[in-house]
Computed example of a mutant assay.
Amino acid sequence: MRAVVVPAYGGSSVLEYTERPDPEPGPGEVLVDVAAAGVNFTDVYHREGRYPLPLPLVPGSEGAGTVTAVGDGVTDIVPGDRVGWAQVVGSYADKAVIPADKAVLLPEGLAPDLAAAVLLQGLTAHYLTHSTYPVRQGDDVLVHAAAGGMGLLLTQIVKLRGGRVIGTVSTPEKEKLARQAGADEVIGYEDVPEAVRRITGAGVHVVYDGVGAATFEGSLASLRPRGLLALYGAASGPVPPFDLQRLNPAGSLFVTRPSLGHYVATREELLSRADDVLGWVASGALKVHVSQRYPLAEAARAHDDLEARRTTGKLLLIP
């Protein structure tokens, strides 16, 4: 098979497109012909060694395709089934072995590239809006990077739950995308707390922040008393340590650093969230914006574009 390999940690130039032996499924696993693999900042962190994994590494934590073989003990998935997955490393390849308990059957009629484009970020947006801070009718919500893949999904799901979205963007083109997704107000990254309080009066109930170091202080200052900051990523770098006592005079604020694995800890929870997300996509209630499809051999270019924020929506690699 052909695959993208990380032989040593570093920049995008370390990514090698190469031939590797065809994998075989072991007990409890399925072998999939990959139709598309999602490109995420997690893949960059794996490549850099920020989230270290044993090397050499085939990156890619999200994908979809058709099952071609199953290992011993797999009874609920058969060859020919179309499946998607998230948080399974090894997706930057034309074949991948996936634990059967991480594979999600795709709804009839849902294209596999859309599943590959939505699962990881869609599951993340689901747990953030349904569990980390369950958005209620009328809540004010600040969504950073509202025109990115995560931001577009978060905006739509917050609106499905009845919240009001204030989205941050960096360009007029991105403002247009955020508004098309349902953002009620769109602001730049300058003076975010002032803009938020001008719009809301008291501040927002929750901030969904995947940017990290560059936005953290503004996110805290945008919260109303007893508001919650959900820091789910660090695209601009990790947040420096800070004194928890600061949360008290600011209004008894809450800060959490959640991650998807803890919110799909059981297969039942994974399937429940995936059924919602994929069902919304299949019905048209949730729109997936795929901004760029790259040949698998051009994974380095996809990483460069993602890190330079030259894109909107979701990036896919196509074997």
Rank of each mutant, 00 (worst) to 15 (best):
V5D: 03
V5Y: 00
P7T: 09
V14H: 12
R20F: 01
P21V: 15
P21M: 12
E24N: 13
P27W: 02
G28P: 06
L31Q: 02
V32E: 00
V34T: 13
A37I: 09
V39T: 09
F41E: 03
Y45N: 13
H46Q: 15
P52Y: 07
P56F: 01
E62R: 02
A69M: 02
V74E: 03
T75L: 14
I77D: 13
V78T: 14
V78L: 08
G90A: 09
A93M: 02
K95Y: 09
A100Q: 13
V104C: 03
V104S: 12
L106G: 05
L106Q: 11
G109I: 04
P112A: 07
D113Q: 13
L114H: 14
A115W: 07
A115Q: 05
A117W: 06
S131G: 10
Y133P: 06
Q137Y: 13
G138I: 06
L142C: 12
H144Y: 14
A146S: 14
G148N: 02
G149L: 06
G151P: 09
G151Q: 01
L152I: 11
L152H: 13
G163K: 15
R164W: 13
V165W: 14
G167M: 10
V169P: 08
E173G: 12
E173P: 03
K174C: 11
K174F: 10
E175Y: 04
K176I: 15
K176N: 05
L177W: 05
D184M: 10
E185F: 15
V186C: 10
D191L: 12
I199N: 04
G201R: 08
A202P: 03
A202M: 13
V204Y: 03
Y208M: 02
Y208V: 00
G212S: 01
G218H: 07
L223C: 11
L231I: 00
Y232P: 05
A234R: 01
S236E: 04
S236Q: 08
G237A: 02
P238K: 09
V239K: 00
Q245W: 15
L247F: 05
P249I: 02
P249W: 11
A250I: 07
V255R: 03
G261F: 04
H262I: 05
Y263S: 11
E268H: 03
L270I: 01
A274Y: 01
L278A: 06
V281G: 13
V288P: 04
V290E: 14
V290P: 07
R293I: 13
E298H: 08
H303P: 06
A308W: 06
R309M: 09
L316T: 05
L317T: 02
I318M: 12
